[in-house]
């Protein structure tokens, strides 16, 4: 698929120059092109925040809903039409703060969707307050952070998420490969992406991410859950790459009774409601 087919003309992008969101958008388009997923079969679901605007800057079906809620409609969209590729794409505040409960329970359900979280450890859109992933001691215009950051990888591994990875917006090639694996994975796939916020986060800068991350090597076995948990809680240097996979976990929508004998999306179906209801009503007589 030509990567240009995802390009949207004449758009006014709201991101700051130098924002990590730009390379993530580019890389996502490249990953989709290489996977040959046409824009018509793709649904980008997002919440609120700067990262959540990503779907507006590319050609795709878009459900840009409410703050923190992207995973709920994303689960539903995939459940009623398994022919669609569904990506829920937002930022750390949206997914891990406002949407924390949905994050936990979507992992438990394991729908076949990809969850991309641009993680810059700060709130950009509301101008610089701490996010759930801001580190202890981080000073914002509003507060000095006095709690430990939310660890999405450790939570996801603890919940036996079927795919858990972390990328960095500064490494487009590696990120593309991670995204391709995540989108191709059957089941819920989390890709937490470190990215600098050039305007508000002066601590976790491009250089800081470079200095404080490393890629897991080929000898690492991502199917070992205990090892994955150890990786997920490393903080002296943060691991990048595919941290954990459980390919055997049942997929939410594939287990639904509506797909037992019929693979078609719901919108194509006709159910003989009238006759079946008459039978049901007869049981009440």
């Amino acid at each position: 698929m030509d990567v240009n087919s995802y390009n949207l003309e004449n758009i006014d992008i709201a991101w700051c120059p130098g924002c990590g969101d730009y390379p993530i958008l580019d890389t996502l388009k490249n990953a989709l092109a290489e996977l040959d997923i046409p824009p018509n079969d793709l649904v980008m679901v997002s919440g609120i925040g700067q990262a959540a605007k990503t779907p507006h800057y590319m050609r795709a079906n878009v459900f840009n809903g409410l703050h923190g809620r992207a995973l709920s409609p994303a689960t539903a969209i995939r459940a009623v039409n398994r022919e669609l590729t569904v990506i829920a794409h937002s930022g750390d505040g949206d997914m891990y703060g406002e949407g924390g409960n949905h994050f936990i329970h979507t992992i438990r359900r394991n729908p076949n969707i990809t969850n991309i979280v641009n993680n810059n450890m700060v709130y950009g859109l509301t101008k610089g307050q701490a996010s759930p992933s801001s580190q202890r001691g981080y000073v914002s215009s509003l507060q000095t952070v006095k709690s430990d950051p939310f660890n999405p990888l450790a939570v996801a591994v603890a919940l036996d998420a079927s795919f858990v990875a972390r990328g960095f917006s500064g490494d487009k090639d590696q990120l593309k490969e991670i995204l391709k694996k995540a989108i191709s994975h059957k089941g819920y796939a989390l890709v937490d992406i470190f990215q600098p916020c050039v305007t508000f986060n002066k601590i976790n800068t491009f250089k800081w991410f470079k200095d404080n991350t490393y890629y897991v090597d080929d000898s690492y076995d991502p199917t070992d859950r205990v090892a994955a948990f150890q990786k997920a809680i490393e903080t002296d240097k943060f691991p990048l790459g595919v941290i954990y996979t459980n390919p055997d976990k049942p997929v939410f929508e594939d287990d639904l009774s509506v797909y037992k004998e019929n693979t078609e999306p719901l919108y194509k179906r006709q159910v003989d409601i009238k006759e079946k209801l008459k039978v049901l009503a007869y049981s009440k007589r």
Partner: peptide, 28 residues
């Protein structure tokens, strides 16, 4: 099973209605 209905017990009511809207969006 009989009528081909997807039933999901949501984690909370916020998820419930946002899920419902996602379902309509995709043709349910």
């Amino acid at each position: 099973d009989d009528f081909g209905i997807i039933v999901d017990q949501a984690e909370d009511e916020i998820a419930a209605i946002n899920t419902g809207l996602g379902a309509w969006y995709a043709g349910a």
